[in-house]
Design a protein around this nucleic acid. Sequence first.
DNA 1: ACTTGCATGTAAGTGGTTACATGATTGG
DNA 2: CCAATCATGTAACCACTTACATGCAAGT
Lengths: 182, 182
Amino acid sequence: MNVRTLCLSILYEGESTGYEIRRLCVEGECAYFIEASYGSIYPALAKLEDEGMVTSRVEPQNGKPAKKVYSITAAGRQAFAAQLAEPLGEDLFRSPFLLFARYVHILPRELVAQRAQEFLDRMTEKHRHLEEAMAERGSNASDTWVINFGRAVMGVAQQHVQTHMHELIDLALAEPNKDAAE
Amino acid sequence: MNVRTLCLSILYEGESTGYEIRRLCVEGECAYFIEASYGSIYPALAKLEDEGMVTSRVEPQNGKPAKKVYSITAAGRQAFAAQLAEPLGEDLFRSPFLLFARYVHILPRELVAQRAQEFLDRMTEKHRHLEEAMAERGSNASDTWVINFGRAVMGVAQQHVQTHMHELIDLALAEPNKDAAE
DNA sequence: ACTTGCATGTAAGTGGTTACATGATTGG
DNA sequence: CCAATCATGTAACCACTTACATGCAAGT
């Protein structure tokens, strides 16, 4: 979905700031994987305030710059629920690596090995992250459901790459003469 | 990646037209899941021709409008390979349904059941599509690798939803009085 | 008569990202 | 002294989507 809805969903759970919302998405607890930058979050929050979906208060901090804490309003909650009731957009999976993988036969073996390892590392990291999220907190039941879905999917993805990456690497071009160079 | 690279990747395998490229993506064989509309494909092809990455020839057809068949050039092949050698963008998975799922406790049971079913149907369809792609054609080894990855992931995704969707539905709001209405 | 499929393309709009601007404080 | 973290925001840019414009032929 869009950043607007993302903001409402986070504020639905409790007060937050633009900075924190961004952190939640990038490093974050957001198990359903979405990313947003400041350049989209701050304008979205400002617009939501304009529309009366959220309110803000400035909270000074000692040693740190003041922060603008946003809270969702009744209208905001209603708008969010209405949004969820509307037909959902399609789920999309975009993988530059899988495009890369289709052309390993024209690429040097070394590069393929490196990219495959990087892909595996990212899968492993995401899986580990979800395992952690599960173990840590007493999240509510639906959050748990979402995390478990993610765990299941990431689990096989990681395992599949781990056990089959060498097959992909073997399809790559013979590495350009390394010994001959020296 | 971007539409430009997408076009090069398809033309790398053989001649094609803007119309066909779009069909390949939307309905298509493109196992690594990407979508693009005419509004992005046609300009991308025109620009690639400007840059000498592709050439085109107009092919009249009887009963159908003439089509513009594009072919990749040596420069195009080189540019594509160079593109693949560059650091890959991150794989991203965006699921409106998983956002929806986190808030089932504030949504009517009927709606949740419907959306969950729709989600399952889409998973099943995608999985079936990959199974078909595998069975059908004598695709090359790297394409097969990519399809197998997709099959593995889609397989568990589908199965997980199938076996656990009722748990999610049970978390929904009690359905608003239906019998009382009449 | 109307819709669907084939086929190409443009213009306007959207929903973002990247980079910049600012500034205080803490830690290496 | 420099980098990083906290914190907010804007402006320029980008890729892509949606809707429009055009047109012919075959099927219903």
